[in-house]
């Protein structure tokens, strides 16, 4: 900037004068840059989840009515979540599997809370391409491993909601949750 200005002026006064000038011009351009970047921030930030969306980022579910062997579908962050009360034989079936043979090796204990091993809480979103697997509702197909079955591309999950067969790469995801009492679980 100052360089171009200098070409138009016959004899720049002294070396020091030129340096002071350059400094002010550079400072002014830098300030304009800072201002420009500052205005970018709200323009980018507005695309992040808004306050009403964030307010629904955790869900409390009453689980007192779920009998052993039953499951319910709840909603967490606008997506289905499966809450399943496992029967003792389902727990047993899950624990008998040799973990090392699994595609995504995890034990049932790692996927549940200590002392609450009968409560299997997972996202109802198939890890293959995002369909909702069957098996949580009364009378739905549970697949050959007694867990969940995704009809889109035939992924089969066992009673710990681990992937056993089909194209899905991972077990059904376990969201963050905690029991706020014996009958209420807070997801998220």
């Amino acid at each position: 900037m100052a360089h171009d200005a200098g070409t138009d002026t016959p004899a720049a006064a002294s070396g020091e004068g030129v340096r002071r000038r350059d400094f002010i011009n550079i400072a002014a351009v830098s300030a304009a840059g800072v201002g420009g970047i500052a205005t970018l921030y709200p323009l980018i930030s507005q695309m992040a989840p808004s306050a009403d969306v964030l307010a629904e980022s955790s869900t409390e579910v009453d689980i007192s009515a779920i009998q052993p062997g039953q499951a319910i579908k709840a909603v967490f962050r606008k997506q289905p979540v499966f809450i399943r009360n496992l029967k003792p034989e389902e727990i047993k079936a899950a624990e008998e599997v040799d973990v090392t043979t699994l595609r995504d090796p995890q034990t049932l204990k790692e996927r549940t809370k200590a002392g609450k091993e009968n409560w299997l809480i997972t996202m109802g979103v198939c890890t293959h391409l995002g369909c909702v697997p069957l098996g949580s509702g009364e009378g739905e197909v549970k697949g050959e491993f007694g867990g969940y079955f995704c009809p889109c591309h035939g992924s089969v999950y066992d009673t710990a909601a681990r992937i056993r067969k089909g194209p899905a790469p991972k077990n059904l995801q376990v969201p963050d949750y905690e029991f706020t009492s014996d009958t209420v679980v807070k997801i998220g």
């Binding site: 900037m1 100052a2 200005a5 138009d8 002026t9 000038r21 002010i24 011009n25 400072a27 002014a28 351009v29 300030a31 304009a32 800072v34 201002g35």
Partner: peptide, 15 residues
Amino acid sequence: ATVLAYMSYRNIWAE
């Protein structure tokens, strides 16, 4: 920033 820009403007137009 405006004060800086003004000073820069005065500089450039000085001649």
